[in-house]
């Protein structure tokens, strides 16, 4: 068995409130991603998916802080890594695509220049060379007329094109791990499918592992080999994608699947009514008390 590319062990993370108080957001999340594997994280808003990805990138902002656990990338602890070395990994070995293609690009800079920055930063290229490589990067994500498009500003592009620019930028240095945080949520359905296919194909070609975050099970099903389901800061279930859809073990996963009008798995064709997920969460509140409140109390007393 090969060593995992990303190994997150018992990750605790929260909002620091003053000196000793601490509001937990992640309560012991553990999962591994193998090299070249596409791993999906699903869960509702606020379940801790995005925060997990920001912790891996080392981009948590001030009141947010990791309070326990380990993040190992190729066996190296990212949490213990000095800032300068972390910067060398970021963008180069671990890259990220964000949810909002409209605001994630600098409006005053051409997209070519923004992609070129990657080559200047991580490969020590000159601006002239980097610009040429940027055009190639745009060609790789199948942007038509890449040489002309490289001179465009973000506002001159559609949402789908901008997301392709983001993908070109993230994959510029052939990273080992791509974190995609809801990359298709802001796009309309047809564009969504194209962008998904692009991510899937490019990563398969280059052997890039993907951590794909979404609240959309359909999207996850189309791209990931394994899925983790997050709920209230915990990873409640993890399985092969097909197995998860066929035999969800956890109540919450069952709720999520039942709430979907359209499923990626054949065995559920005979479904009748959609399940209202609110009632499931209400039912689960008793379970929550026994399973989630206890560690939260213990967490709160930690410095």
């Amino acid at each position: 068995m090969t060593a995992p590319l990303l190994d997150i062990r018992d990750l605790h993370l929260g909002v620091a409130l003053g000196r000793s108080a601490h509001h937990p957001l992640l309560k012991g999340v553990t999962f591994q991603i193998m090299p070249g594997e596409a791993y999906g994280l699903v869960g509702e808003s606020g379940s801790g998916k995005s925060v997990t990805s920001l912790a891996v990138m080392g981009l948590l902002k001030k009141p947010l802080a990791v309070s326990g656990g380990e993040i190992l990338f190729k066996g190296q602890s990212l949490l213990a890594l000095p800032k300068r070395q972390m910067r060398r990994l970021r963008g180069n070995r671990i890259a990220m695509i964000f949810q909002e293609p409209m605001t994630a690009l600098n409006p005053l800079s051409t997209v070519g220049r923004q992609i070129a920055e990657m080559f200047v930063l991580h490969q020590g290229k000159s601006w002239g060379e980097a610009q040429k490589l940027a055009v190639e990067a745009l060609r790789n994500v199948r942007v038509p007329h890449p040489d002309r498009r490289a001179k465009n500003y973000p506002h001159q592009m559609s949402g789908g094109l901008r997301q392709r620019v983001m993908i070109a930028m993230a994959l510029a240095c052939n990273p080992d791990l791509l974190i995609a945080d809801e990359p298709t949520t802001a796009l309309d359905v047809t564009v969504q499918a194209e962008v998904l296919r692009l991510i899937k194909e490019l990563c398969a070609e280059r052997g890039t592992a993907v951590l794909f975050i979404s609240h959309d099970l359909g999207v996850i099903a189309s791209i990931c080999q394994r899925v983790g389901v997050m709920y209230a800061g915990c990873l409640v279930e993890e399985n092969e994608t097909r197995a998860l859809f066929d035999t969800p073990r956890h109540d919450y996963t069952r709720g999520l699947l039942g709430a979907l009008p359209r499923l990626g798995s054949r065995s559920q064709h005979g479904r009748q009514r959609l399940i209202d997920i609110d009632s499931i969460i209400a039912d689960r509140s008793k379970l929550t008390e026994t399973r989630f409140i206890a560690p939260r109390g213990a967490e709160g007393s930690k410095p």
Binding site: M57, R90, G91, F98, E100, A104, E117, L121, M169
Partner: peptide, 11 residues
């Protein structure tokens, strides 16, 4: 958001 993107590039 684009400043977060810039940080994510390792700048």
């Amino acid at each position: 958001d684009f400043i977060r993107t810039a940080h994510s590039k390792g700048m």
